[in-house]
């Protein structure tokens, strides 16, 4: 037994969509205070893993542990009350709610929620949201929606933040802002981050460690620097990406 158990521990997880196998025995772990990234091509199963951790879909076999406690098989809403928050693929902002209401939804089920404190923190991080707090979520730009999705996830003061493709479809300048915010949250607030990205260059530069997923299996892992230096990673994921 190692002395420091990981905050998130995924062991041999298999997930099916109907009869199709999406994850074929995934093992990975995220230690407290780390930024860990998972990179891979479209359709490799990255988002499926993210959602399987949250219990939707449920893993067919294998276990997921959060802070030493098994959460496999729990209903999604119970998992999400355990200090885990997700900013999902496609952002999933509530389009007909105001920015403020979207944020409050993020803190709705958090125990001992200090809503004002959380609001203060996310407005510091993304001042744009403060300006737009009364606007409907559906009318925000893509970048603002992404900021809102992350901010909403932060409202419950989670220990683990799951981030699915925060850079998707955004201008480089916005991507930089968002990645800076993630670094700030990790260093300043000690937030543990598990980041799924196609933008492998930025993700690996930001992360302490990374995993590479191909066809529902982890094929490589290492520190961000190690993976960035590997030729096969460069060839597969970084061509033209380092701009």
């Amino acid at each position: 037994m190692s002395t420091s158990q990981p905050l998130l521990d995924v062991r041999d997880v298999v997930t099916h969509y109907g009869k199709i196998v999406a994850l074929r025995g995934v093992d990975l772990s995220v230690a407290s205070g780390e930024i860990v990234t998972l990179i891979g091509a479209n359709g490799a199963g990255k988002s499926t893993l993210m959602m399987t951790i949250c219990g939707s879909p449920k893993a067919t076999s294998g276990q997921v542990y959060f802070d030493g406690e098994e959460i496999t098989g729990l209903p999604t809403h119970e998992i999400m009350r355990k200090s885990i928050a997700q900013s999902p693929e496609g952002r999933r902002i509530f389009p007909r709610m105001s920015v403020m209401e979207n944020l409050i939804m993020g803190a709705e089920t958090a125990s001992n929620a200090d809503v004002d404190g959380s609001l203060q923190r996310v407005f510091d991080l993304f001042p744009r949201l403060k300006e737009r707090q009364n606007q409907r979520g559906g009318t925000l730009s893509g970048g603002e929606q992404q900021m809102l999705a992350i901010a909403r996830a932060l409202m419950s003061k989670p220990r683990l933040l799951l981030l699915d493709e925060p850079s998707l479809g955004l201008a480089p300048l916005i991507v930089k802002q968002i990645f800076d915010a993630i670094r700030d949250l990790n260093q300043g607030d000690g937030l543990t981050v598990f980041l799924v990205e196609q933008n492998a260059y930025h993700a690996l530069k930001l992360a302490h460690r990374g995993y590479v997923m191909v066809n529902g299996k982890i094929t490589m892992s290492g520190t961000g620097k190690e993976l960035l230096a590997r030729d096969d990673v460069k060839a597969a994921y970084l061509e033209g990406g380092a701009h």
Partner: peptide, 14 residues
């Protein structure tokens, strides 16, 4: 209203 607009996201918020 959250469930009405996006049930899956609502469950992801607990």
């Amino acid at each position: 209203r959250a469930c009405e607009q996006d049930r899956k996201m609502a469950s992801l918020l607990g």
